[in-house]
Design a protein around this nucleic acid. Structure first.
Lengths: 288, 288
DNA sequence: TAACAAATTCAGTTTTGGTGAACTTGATGA
DNA sequence: TCATCAAGTTCACCAAAACTGAATTTGTTA
């Protein structure tokens, strides 16, 4: 299907004769005639009544011309996608870990609607490692994760926000010092296969604490529920603790002992990502 | 803009590599590569990240591919227009005289919706002569008019319906015979430039009546309003009289004196019209 | 019916799109 | 890190398509 022939056909809706269209389009009359003939043959349809001179569009030809306008309109939309005049353009596949999908995604959507109206987005949820892998292997363009390692080949990390870590313990043990607490209750660890879990376990190693007993759970809400029931204590990012907090639970600062948790934007470190990385990073800011 | 290149691009949304697409589309790998390269050049856009192997769609490339699907969908719609499987296809420009737009057009629309869903229509209103000219000169495909002349070059007439003519006179003159009536009141003629008007005037000539005085009006409703006010009497198609009748007006049969008025479908008498004429004629029937 | 304007046909030329071989380049694994 | 491999790119070349201009045909108009 030749788009130039469709353009010619559409012109015939507005011009009275093949020759008029030929002039308007800077072609010879014979080229117009041949284009239309080829189109009729390809479609196996009579688009013109050739018993009259100039040839007249048949009702079918008219409808085909109308539909051709639709094709050309879509084509023009396609072309205008590539006129990089209004900021970010493209379909971006972006992953968010749970926390980020609450803290960052809403802002991102609002910013994008305003500042990147021609871009579209598709979001994925997952754990930090999975999402980083997805970015590294091209299944995602970018992801917001917790810092995985200081350097990963061909990936670039940009810090978006830091979440303070905080200890959550049962209200009944609010006055215990750390030794008493760890003697009385097990430490509940968030599942170490996720980014946040691994961070905590290395921190504990650094602090040289050896809790006598440990529980390992794989959900933040579940972990805090155990704390509320007096089954143990834990350390989690402050926003997560606050979200699920009630009066059966108290918090205690662990500043100095535990580093904050960084939310970072991961992208591939290649030339093409460079074209949009900073713009996407900007849209992730709470106040861009 | 090459449609085949767009098809290739769309295939790349579902296949992992150029070579996979090449195989799926029965082309060589180098052809795929060159198509994509040409497309990037034409759009002046980076659709692929060529630093990775296989080349990966960029976010922009992905969006362009999505938009390309839109182009192809419109293209497919165009192709399907020409698969003449579901009856009448095309955009038809059809004229109706006033009476016909009331008596025939509603049925036509209902029939067309049911029997010719792929056809579209655009309607024009006018007088019989104008509409016939429009058909003859290709501005309309067909028209429903009153019989203009028995034969007009290159036009074909098909009778759709006959409207009986009837005399309308003021109720106050209900018992007058024709001589008394014509002595007492002027004959009111519908404007002779329209088909119906001319028909009446020739009939009068044939009947060798010479009304002493005449009024000439150009609207049916206006003509009947004058009759209702006792200003004269007239002869009009029965359906029109019935539509505007009230108790100030009585009717009298003129069968034998005036021939009925035929509503006919006018089309050009050429080969292409022949393809759809009978179908359109069928849709005009009250019970097709 | 002649004359004209416009569409079609046709031979020749340019442009485009494609192939296959040779070459280059990321990715993979020892 | 290096060798190997699979996959993409480039290039020379060929075939098909699209266009031009001249010759021809054909409705339309005077």
């Amino acid at each position: 299907m030749n788009v130039r022939a469709l353009e010619t056909l559409v012109h015939l809706l507005g011009h009275p004769s093949f020759s008029a269209v030929a002039e308007a389009r800077n072609m010879t009359l014979s080229a117009v005639s041949m284009q239309m003939k080829a189109l009729e043959k390809e479609l196996n349809a009579e688009l013109f009544d050739r018993q009259s001179r100039p040839p007249r569009l048949t009702p079918l030809g008219r409808q085909v011309a109308l539909q051709a306008q639709g094709v050309l309109a879509e084509r023009d939309d396609l072309l205008s996608l590539c006129q990089s005049d209004h900021g970010l353009t493209g379909q971006f596949l972006i992953g968010f870990i749970q926390t980020a999908s609450v803290r960052i995604l809403p802002h991102f959507l609002a910013n994008a609607r305003r500042l990147a109206p021609k871009a579209t987005f598709q979001f994925a949820a997952g754990l930090s490692e999975t999402l980083s892998d997805d970015v590294a292997e091209g299944r995602l363009d970018a992801a917001v994760v917790t810092q995985v390692d200081q350097e990963v080949a061909h990936l670039k990390f940009q810090r978006l926000a830091t979440e303070e870590m905080v200890m959550a313990l049962p209200a009944s043990h609010a006055d215990d010092d750390l030794d008493t607490l760890s003697a009385a209750l097990p430490f509940i660890r968030f599942r170490p296969t996720s980014g946040i879990g691994r961070l905590i376990s290395t921190s504990i190693a650094k602090a040289k604490q050896k809790p006598d007993s440990q529980l390992i759970l794989d959900s933040i809400e579940g972990t805090l529920e155990c704390v509320k029931l007096g089954l143990g204590y834990t350390v989690l990012p402050a926003p997560d603790v606050v979200r699920y907090a009630d009066d059966r639970l108290v918090t205690r600062s662990v500043e100095g002992t535990y580093p904050g948790r960084d939310l970072v934007l991961v992208t591939r470190d290649d030339k093409t990502s460079g074209r949009w990385r900073d713009e996407v990073f900007g849209l992730m800011q709470l106040t861009p």
